[in-house]
Each structure stands twice: as structure tokens, then as C-alpha cells.
Design a protein around this nucleic acid. Sequence first.
DNA 1: TATTTTTGTAAATAATTCATTATGGAGGTG
DNA 2: CACCTCCATAATGAATTATTTACAAAAATA
Lengths: 224, 224
Amino acid sequence: MFRILVVEDDTNTRKLMCAVFRRNGFDALQAEDGMAALKIMDQQHVDLVVLDLMMPNLNGYELSKQLRLTWENLPILMVTAKQEPKDKRKGFLAGTDDYMTKPVDEEEMLLRIKALLRRAQIVSEHKLLLGEVTLNYDALTVTREKEEISLPQKEFYLLFKLLSYPNIIFTRLQLMDELWGMETSTNDHTLNVHINRLREKFRDWTEFEIVTVRGLGYKAVRKI
Amino acid sequence: MFRILVVEDDTNTRKLMCAVFRRNGFDALQAEDGMAALKIMDQQHVDLVVLDLMMPNLNGYELSKQLRLTWENLPILMVTAKQEPKDKRKGFLAGTDDYMTKPVDEEEMLLRIKALLRRAQIVSEHKLLLGEVTLNYDALTVTREKEEISLPQKEFYLLFKLLSYPNIIFTRLQLMDELWGMETSTNDHTLNVHINRLREKFRDWTEFEIVTVRGLGYKAVRKI
DNA sequence: TATTTTTGTAAATAATTCATTATGGAGGTG
DNA sequence: CACCTCCATAATGAATTATTTACAAAAATA
């Protein structure tokens, strides 16, 4: 069972959140400020932290920085005020983080929590499991039962990125940025070609498919 | 028959693990804490220890240190929490150790146990057995039936390293590091050359093969 | 010291991966 | 339907990476 730590100064909100988590099969702990949170983290295993950014004493930004020092891949879901500028909201997130704005929608929170946990697992195990199919990040291979396809780096990272977040559309820019870096001078047509090569290699696989979203970019969808 | 000692404070988990081992042809002993574990170890021969790091009294770290003092090459499989930082998880492992994160997958645990036992045997006997083929660490020789090839040091250690962990990819950096040390000024092309020499010598052997993983490094695969 | 063996370097060759271009097709829009 | 944009595909060539060969330096051995 996954254990979630809720850090939130408002007692009502905090208790409500914990109740929601418990009702949905999670184990929930609570802390009313950053200090209490760190104390709990030292004592027991926590899979994910939900964090209000507006708190007395050690505020959310500071706490998340502290947490990152020790638990590099700990997923953190930050709860921010809506009027906070967007770049500030996203700016300091690590790869395994996400944020939501208040007031928090219960349904949405659970979805995000689940996505974060899944992603954190991917990060820590360097593997991506999709039913019968496994992407092994360290070996650059894709396997299905006995079959193993090994891919060139660019192709592999592209596929891994897409399949890490199925059904999520990535713009060409995002993908270029992730695989080639901001400052590349590489023509962005090359992305088409890589996509094409991937499609070619996995044409007869029924598990997933790379779908073009015209005008936007690409997404991977799981079939079956 | 190999004998495994399970050290785990949670009674259910402990009994379940022992049941799994017995079902798979191992002899299983159990201890609910470090003290009990040491007592058992003093009384009888144990081939491998499975150890939960989170335990009351003598914790897992301490116990493993204690065990190492007397049983230098005892293979230990540590069970750690997932959020433990990776360097902490791996940092104190000896060559014959491994770790897993909770929750533990039965299949994976058995695989790791077998790999550990195999490796421990390598270490204690200074030999690596692959079917008909034997690598003798002290003599720097590779034998198959009546045939015996003796290798120069660098070549032998390289082959030994690769074959100790078949199917695991080692980066050029890892291999350079292991065979030449971090601070070497040796050109890393030399690795290619050594690989090439090994391939040449064992070209007609069907038992194993050195495979290059472009952009990453090399791995040894067992054939047949 | 002379000889052999081992190890490292360098250069030539080969293979793979990646980027670019060109062409044509699909889908949207007026 | 005509037109345009965006994307798919194929072909080509450049860049990167690995293999092989030859040779020289270093170390070990006779």
C-alpha cells in the first residue's frame, strides 16, 4: 500500500485530504508544518508528499528543497494558490512533481497522485511496463515475451518519453527540447523521420501506437 | 541444498518468505531481529541472508556490518524502502550483495537469490562456471573440456567481469574504471582493442559472445 | 641483455545512427 | 474543387561510433 504524507497548516483541509486518501486505499499521514513533516519523513517510509505552498515557518518552497536533498525521486504534489504566476508554479518542479491550484478537486487530485506514483516507479526502476511490453531504459531495448528489439538512443528515448505519459500530447517543441536540448540547431523535420522509424519497427505490435495530432505534435496510445 | 536465513520483524512477511523459499527447493530459517539472527548464524551454516533494513533493536545496516566481520563473503540480499536514496541503498553493499525495494516480487526475489548464490560461489572458489566452460581467476585461464586458453591479465579480467554478470551492459566508463582505475591516462580506444582480441580468441566458441551496445558499452551473452 | 609477451596507440576501414532533402499524400479551409 | 499546410516516406549523405590491422612501447622472462 502506498503511503502519502499531507503537509498543510489548515486542520480542516488536512483532515479532509487524509480522509479522501484513506477512502481510496492509501495510507495517509499528516503534518501541520514543514518541521513536523521532516520529522515524520525521518521516521518512516513515505511514497508521496502533498504539500501546501503557503505555510507558516518553513514554507512549501523551502520544504520541497529540503526534501529533495535526501529523497531525490520522491514525488511531490504541490498545492498552490491560483493567482500565483504560472511560471512560479512550475518553475521549481522536479521530474517527479506536479502541482494543483486551490480549491482542490478530489477526483483530479487522485488522478494526479496515481500518475505521480506511476512515474516515480518508472524513474526509480528505469523500466516501463505496459502489459506484455517492457521498455528497459538501461539497455535501450523493448521486449515482448521472447522478442527483443534494441533501438538506437534517439529512437529509444523518444519512444520512452511518449510511452511514459500515454495519451498525453507532446508538441514537437517539447520533444525536440527533451531529446536534442533547447539550443540545438537540428532541423525539426528529423523528428518526423524518427517517429517514422519507430512506427516502422513496431508496425505489427498491437500494444501501442504513435498517433499524430495534426498541428500539435504526437502522442502514444495504448491499444487493447 | 542451500540454506537461507530470513531476518524480518514482521511475522507474516517472514513466514511468507520462508514458504516461498521452501517451495522452491531451499532450506529456510527465520529470525525476527538482529540478535536472533546472529545466534542462528553462530550455530549453523547459512548460505545466504535476506535482511530487512528497517528493524527494531539492531537495524539492518548494523547487522550486515556485524555479519561481514565474521562471514566476509556471505551473500546478503537487503530489502529496503523505495524512497531510500539510491546511493544509500547501494553504498554499503559488498560484492556479493544485492538489494530489493518493497513491496517484494516473489519471482524477482528468487532470481536475485540465485544470482547471488552463483556470484558467491564465483568469489569463494575464484572460478566461474558456464556449462562446459570454466574461467579460473587465479590462473587466468579459460578451459573447455581438454582445451585451455591462457589470457593476459587485462583481457582475462575484462572477460571475467563481463561474464560474471551476463546480459548486463557495462558502459565503457565502468569497464575502464574497473580495469584501469578512474585516474588512468590510458586512451579508451584500448578497450576496443581488448574486446577485439577476446572476440578473436573465442570466435568459434559457442558458449558466449561479447555484444556491443552502440552508444553504451558491452555485454556478454550466453548462447545455447 | 636479448627475446618474448603484453599492453597501448594510431590509422584505416566498416558499420550504424542521425540529419537533410525531396517528393507526394492527407486533411483542412475558403 | 483548388489551394495550402502539415506530415509521411524514401533516399541520400554526413557524422558518429566501433572494428580491425599494424606497429611501438613497456613489461616480463629467459
